[in-house]
Structures are given as structure tokens and as C-alpha cells.
């Protein structure tokens, strides 16, 4: 599963060019742009998750916590002190990291693993959501709107979704590069080893606790910065950004994409998030939430019948296509 996981360079460049051209096709269709950007956002989140979940095998369900922290940092700084989201994103990422370490240190210290890690990280999201609902100075039950600007790079506010698409695409590339780098470094090997067996990794000299914290920090930073963009794109912040369903969905994308495969989560995001949005657009009209029923069935089927992940499947199809083309 994990070896041979890099795609050919030519294909990567072709895909990137294709992605860069996509908004030109969509033109002023804002719905399509939001959809594409959302797919990219999930791609970023799931790719970041791949570091802690896919490589290190820690089933983290707290993506919403870090996303929310990033969003609230950017939003609050912009609304209160007119500080540019570009700076806010970095700060938001760092706050997410700080929080992740604060939570992660005792969890890893006491050897909380597997299920209990998954559950306590998912509890974290809900704790933050409720805390921000109650904390009226920063959160509260009402949406807090970011100042409106027709086109301001400083404020990261635009009347069209086009720029957000490109920013998110840039973040996705960043997340993929980080992922790829980690995967082929000492940290990556250590994470894979401890994800398989912590005791065995320890006796081979792996400081499992420190490695897990590093993975957690990288993941939280990427998700936190993405959260900052998320706030600017939607133009408001709300405690519901600390979303449990989003957190589980990110993990699911990472799992069905193919654990530890660099490009797996992106493939899963493209396939599944667009499927979900397609279902929502076509089934949502008459029957609210019917699309979710269908979507969850699709999820279960993929998890049951493609347990190695979509990536291996796509990769196989690509290889077959290539060999057929060569034959002709």
C-alpha cells in the first residue's frame, strides 16, 4: 500500500495545470467555484490528516477543532484590530499547534491509543464548540461578520470565490509537498513504524511520543491555516465551525483514500465530496438530507469493499490505461 505511492511527475503537472484552468471553465458560475474550492479545502484537510492518521496511525477526529481555532483567530484579528488574514493565518496555525500540543502531550504521555485517542479528540471538537458558544467576547451564538470588501488582498476579502480557489489550490500543493517530504524522511519512517507497533518502534530507538507530537503539530498547523482561509471565504465566523461531522469526514476521506498514500486523500476528496455535493444538488430539493442517506451508504460500501483505499484502485486503473496506450 505504502510503497510505490508516488505518481509520475508528468501526470502531476498535467493535473495541476488542469486544476489551475478549472475556474476559467466555470467562469462566473459562483456555485461551481464554491464547489471546487470546497473540494480543495477537504483535500487540504484530509492531506494534512494523512500525516497523523495515515502515517502515524493515530485516528484523530479533531480536524474541526483546529479549523475553528484558525478561523476564529483570523476572524477576531480582522474584525477587532484590522489585522491582515495573511498574518492571522500564520498565527491561527500556531495557535492550533499550541492547542494540539497542550492536548496531545498528556494524551500521548499517558499512552492513550487507538479508540480512546479517537474518542477524546472528537470530544475536543465539541468542547471547543460549546466553549465558544458560551464565550461571548469572541464567540457567542450569533455569526460575526468579517468586513466587506469588493476586492482587497490585504483583507483577503473578494466579491468572487475565484481567488479563494487559487489560494486553496496553493495550500493543497503545500500540504502535498509537506506530506511527501515527511513521508520520505526519518520522521516519516518513524511515524509509519510506530503506527504499526509502538513498542517495536521504541526499542529501535524511536521516541514515539515526540514523533507523534511532531506529526500532530504539522497537521494542526496546516488545518489551522486552512481554517483562516475558510473564515475569509465564507465571510463570517461561528462556533459551529468546530464541527464534529466535518472532523469525522476528514478522517473518513483519509481512510478511504488509502492510509499513508500521499495522494490518496485528495483523490477521496475529489470523488466523495463532489459526489456528496452532486447528491445534495440533485436529491436535496424535495427530500432534505436524503442525499446524506445515499452518501453514507456509498461510504460504507467503499470502506467495506475497497479497504486499501481509492488510491490503489485509481493507480491500478491508471497503470492499465497506460499499458493499453503503449500497446497501441
Amino acid at each position: 500500500m505504502r510503497s510505490g505511492n508516488s505518481l509520475p511527475r508528468s501526470l502531476l503537472i498535467a493535473l495541476l495545470v488542469l486544476a489551475a484552468l478549472l475556474p476559467l471553465v466555470a467562469r462566473s458560475n459562483q456555485y461551481a467555484l464554491v464547489l471546487f474550492t470546497t473540494v480543495l479545502l477537504y483535500g487540504v484537510l484530509a492531506t494534512a490528516w494523512n500525516i497523523i492518521g495515515g502515517l502515524a496511525g493515530q485516528l484523530d477526529l479533531a480536524a474541526g477543532a483546529y479549523l475553528g481555532l484558525g478561523a476564529f483567530t483570523v476572524g477576531t484579528l480582522l474584525i477587532r484590530w484590522n489585522i491582515s488574514p495573511w498574518l492571522g493565518m500564520i498565527l491561527g496555525g500556531l495557535i492550533a499547534v499550541g492547542f494540539a500540543l497542550l492536548i496531545g502531550y498528556p494524551l500521548f504521555r499517558f499512552g492513550i491509543r487507538e479508540v480512546w485517542y479517537a474518542l477524546s479528540s472528537s470530544a475536543l471538537v465539541e468542547v471547543l464548540r460549546v466553549a465558544f458558544l458560551i464565550w461571548n467576547q469572541v464567540g457567542g451564538p450569533m455569526e460575526r461578520y468579517l468586513p466587506y470588501h469588493e476586492w482587497s488582498l490585504y483583507h483577503l476579502r473578494f466579491a468572487t470565490y475565484m481567488p479563494f480557489y487559487y489560494i486553496m489550490l496553493g495550500m493543497l500543493v503545500l500540504a502535498l509537498v509537506v506530506n511527501h517530504r515527511v513521508r520520505h524522511s526519518r520522521l516519516g519512517y518513524y511515524l509509519m513504524a510506530l503506527g504499526e507497533n509502538e513498542d517495536a518502534a521504541e526499542v529501535l530507538g524511536v521516541n514515539t511520543q515526540a514523533c507523534k507530537l511532531q506529526a500532530l503539530a504539522l497537521y494542526a498547523f496546516l488545518v489551522g491555516t486552512a481554517g483562516g482561509v475558510y473564515a475569509c471565504m465564507y465571510g463570517f465566523i461561528h462556533p459551529n465551525f468546530f464541527s464534529g461531522p466535518l472532523s469525522t469526514e476528514v478522517a473518513i476521506l483519509g481512510i478511504v483514500g488509502g492510509m499513508g498514500i500521499t495522494y490518496g486523500p485528495v483523490m477521496a476528496a475529489i470523488l466523495l465530496v463532489s459526489t456528496r455535493e452532486f447528491l445534495r444538488a440533485n436529491l436535496g430539493g424535495q427530500l432534505e438530507s436524503f442525499y446524506l442517506v445515499v452518501y453514507s451508504v456509498v461510504l460504507i460500501l467503499i470502506a467495506l469493499f475497497r479497504p486499501q483505499g481509492i488510491a490503489t484502485f485509481v493507480r491500478g486503473a491508471y497503470d492499465r490505461l497506460l499499458s493499453r496506450m503503449v500497446k497501441e
Binding site: I252, S296, L299, I300, A303
Partner: peptide, 11 residues
């Protein structure tokens, strides 16, 4: 397993 039961939960 968790992916499957989370799918069931959503369902």
C-alpha cells in the same frame, strides 16, 4: 471498522 460505523452513524 471505525470508518464503517461512522458511515452507519451518518446513515
Amino acid at each position: 471498522q471505525i470508518a464503517v460505523t461512522v458511515g452507519l452513524m451518518t446513515f
